[in-house]
Each structure stands twice: as structure tokens, then as C-alpha cells.
Design a protein around this nucleic acid. Structure first.
Lengths: 110, 110
DNA sequence: CGCATTACCTAAGATTCTTATGTATGTAAT
DNA sequence: ATTACATACATAAGAATCTTAGGTAATGCG
């Protein structure tokens, strides 16, 4: 989702957390929201997002609700119960990752 | 380097930053040091590390110095000038990544 | 002597992403 | 009316990074 390889692996966490907070969103809306929140620093490509949404749905973490808006279908995604649990897990893993990066990259010069 | 996909993409940054601080290290030593610093939370596999060291060397970011210790060869790696510059860049990218994760995952509920 | 540790290495496969497309509708501008 | 951009979905080939599973070889300990 950028030239930056660091974002690799973080997309599911971002999507699940957004849905956790907003209730339900559709794919295109997620890309807009992430750009807005990060002031354009993180751009999620559709080639990354849609397969991820399908994967999360296949895993039973998301459910879908199709609505027709302006004569076009929108697929609204929302968390299942398992999705809510997994969101907590992934947020904890992210916290752990950032803490480990902190001790590695900002060592207390003993 | 774990079950956790989040670490994907961070290995080069970790290696360069370690070499930046310690001056020079050899591969096996890097794996020990990272485990020690993270109290065993992050284990760098050799299948990930050695190809990364070779890649960084091929890019001109690292140089090698082979020393024989206990009748066995050790390859000590150290930063080139370009390696020092790239370390700064990668640390800045990591900082930016963590900041973006912060605004995405810990929203100030407006 | 056998087994763990040290110390290097590679290769097949998995996962996640980029890049490049494709389809289709709505809307604003020329 | 046609061009162009935004909306909204989707897939597929290839790149990048890792895991898993090996391989080689010397040292050290019980």
C-alpha cells in the first residue's frame, strides 16, 4: 500500500479495527477513510483490499450485506463475533510489535 | 520471524540499526542479540536473515570482513556510507509507519 | 561418543502486496 | 454529446519477504 514494505501484514488489522469502530463499511469507503485519517500517507490499493476482504469473510471474521445505492451495488462489511475477538488479538499483536520495535530501535544505552 | 505477519518488512531495518549501534556483527550474533533484546519475543530465522544480509551487501549497504575464530569462519558485517544513510531513511519510515498506525488504531474519538 | 551449540548456506512454498487490467454507473465539464 | 473523473466492484501475473526444511562443518559438554 505504498513503496513502504513495513505496511505489509497490517492491512487486516486496519480493516478490522475500522469496522470495529464504524460498525459497517464498504470497500471503497475503507480506502477513502484510511487516506483521510492518515492525511494521504497511506493509500490502500484495491488490488490489496478486495482480496483481503474476501479472505476475512472466508475466515468467518466478516459478514456482508449488499445494498443498492444509485443503481449500483455496495457490499457493506461488518464484524462477526469471531471477527470481534480476532480484532482484539490483532490489536494486541500490533501493540507487541510496536513495543518490540521500540526496544530494538530505541535502545536505552546501558 | 514468528507467526506474526507484522514483522514482515522490518528485518532490514532491524539489522541496519543493530549494525549502526554495534559497529559490526556476524549473522549468528544478530539472531542471538535480537532474541536477547526482545526477551525471546522475536526470533529471527536463519532462512530469513542470511538472504537479507546478502541482499543488503549486494545493494552496497553492508560490507563484509571474514575472520577465522576457533577454526571456523565468521562473516562480520558493517555499514557502508550508503548503509548509514539508508539506516536513517528506514528508521524514519518506521517512525512514520508507527505514527500512522497510531492514528488509525487509536483514534481520538472526535 | 552423541548431542547441543556455533556458524554458515540454499531452495521450495506460503503470504502479502503491487501493478495492470476489466466492468459498469453517475456526474461534471466542454 | 463526449470526454473525463469519481464511484464501486473484481481478478490475475509478478515481486518481495518470509517460513519450513533441509545441508555442511567445527566446537564443547556430559
Amino acid at each position: 500500500m505504498q513503496k513502504n514494505q513495513l505496511y505489509k501484514g497490517s492491512l487486516s488489522t486496519i480493516v478490522l479495527k475500522l469496522l470495529n469502530d464504524k460498525g459497517k463499511m464498504y470497500g471503497y469507503q475503507i480506502t477513502r477513510e484510511v487516506e483521510k485519517i492518515t492525511t494521504g500517507e497511506l493509500v490502500i490499493t484495491e488490488g490489496a483490499l478486495y482480496p483481503t476482504l474476501h479472505k476475512l469473510e472466508a475466515k468467518g471474521l466478516l459478514s456482508v450485506e449488499i445494498k443498492k445505492v444509485n443503481n449500483r451495488p455496495r457490499k457493506y462489511y461488518f464484524l462477526t463475533e469471531n471477527g470481534k475477538k480476532e480484532t482484539v488479538n490483532l490489536l494486541n499483536e500490533m501493540k507487541s510489535f510496536i513495543q518490540n520495535m521500540d526496544v530494538l530501535l530505541n535502545p536505552k544505552l546501558a
